[in-house]
Design a protein around this nucleic acid. Sequence first.
DNA 1: ATGTGTTTCCATCATTTGATGGAATTATAT
DNA 2: ATATAATTCCATCAAATGATGGAAACACAT
Lengths: 212, 212
Amino acid sequence: MATPLEKARKDPNSMKAKILKVARRMFGEYGYHGTTTRMIAREVGIDISTLYYHWGEKTDLYESVILDINNDLRKKLVEVEKVIHGRPLARRLGIAIDMVTDYLFECPEISNLVLFQYFRKTREEPNLDFHVPDFISDIARSMDLCKTRESIPTSASMRVLAMMNSIHNFISGEEFFREMLKLKREEYIDHVKETLEFMLIPAFNSRKAGLK
Amino acid sequence: MATPLEKARKDPNSMKAKILKVARRMFGEYGYHGTTTRMIAREVGIDISTLYYHWGEKTDLYESVILDINNDLRKKLVEVEKVIHGRPLARRLGIAIDMVTDYLFECPEISNLVLFQYFRKTREEPNLDFHVPDFISDIARSMDLCKTRESIPTSASMRVLAMMNSIHNFISGEEFFREMLKLKREEYIDHVKETLEFMLIPAFNSRKAGLK
DNA sequence: ATGTGTTTCCATCATTTGATGGAATTATAT
DNA sequence: ATATAATTCCATCAAATGATGGAAACACAT
């Protein structure tokens, strides 16, 4: 009960917490190999060895970052679930898209790192043991894709992944897509929500039953 | 008319072509910073300076890789368009999903690199001038999202991006998702197609009209 | 004030990495 | 066979990078 990550969570003003916050952003923006420990230290305004003093190896810091963003995302999803509970499906989806999108646009490094986790290998494998996001089952249940949390059909997991990734894509790709479509930030966010509703609501709404 | 890329395309057995092929795979797997010129050279079985002899700087090679995969993808989409032309929309989508998915599972580095292009920054910016994929307008027209190729509504572009990214996600994330869901390759591919149909067909089929 | 433990920085190392010059090798034309 | 050009590899460099030891600075209790 005294890992650097727990200490950082306990005191948000501590140096550990400051470093973690910057590391999240940098790793999210440039990826694991694209980020150097010196870049992080410079951004925090400390010497590189202070960083090593608090966090040890680069892989340890990266691992903590991943654990941290997964934790944040899980907490947010629980919060969303509380809000949408009991409403009709299409409405649930609409609200969930709205809340999750707003949240991720505030913390884009979460989307960056989640996608990075899925898509990219690292040379020296700081491979955090394939942490299957347990909240996938919660989302599946919340979207009427299955009854219990225990046995989720593969199709349901796939659909949840597709849904979550659609959102992450637009967050992570903001810079690229906005430049491409010549949109202001607010316009872009609105278009993202509209597009997600266009894709997700008909899909989940039209065939509540037909699961393999 | 004598760039290394053109030479490589002309003679697929040339050393330039061999290097390009390996570079595609490596950059796709490990990203720009995650791939070293030595890794590529070792994989090809040549000395590192032979690689520099043929391709010059690392950024030049990377740029050629990006141009190459964009070109391949565009060619494939033209081919798909020829096959689906004239059929009803839902059928067009079904066939397109099938063909494009099969193709990308054969060349997963295309999906890797496309997503990498969208999502990740590189430190020293080998930023190929924000090449807006021109085939987006073709797809939009092919999906009944607009009439002409010239003026595509932003919503249409967004929907095409969402669609393409959904496919790329499952290709790039194969290793991670398959491990997570404990699926064999064939099972996974089938689930991917089913999920894409689940998401895309109702969306594009149900509201041919309602575009902002 | 003094002592103890914590935090921060300076200096430095060993590797890795992008990159190049030049010798050696191979292909090609005459 | 010989000259010329193209190709490949060996040796090496400079810069960047992950990492650490140890001295200095700081906090704080007694």
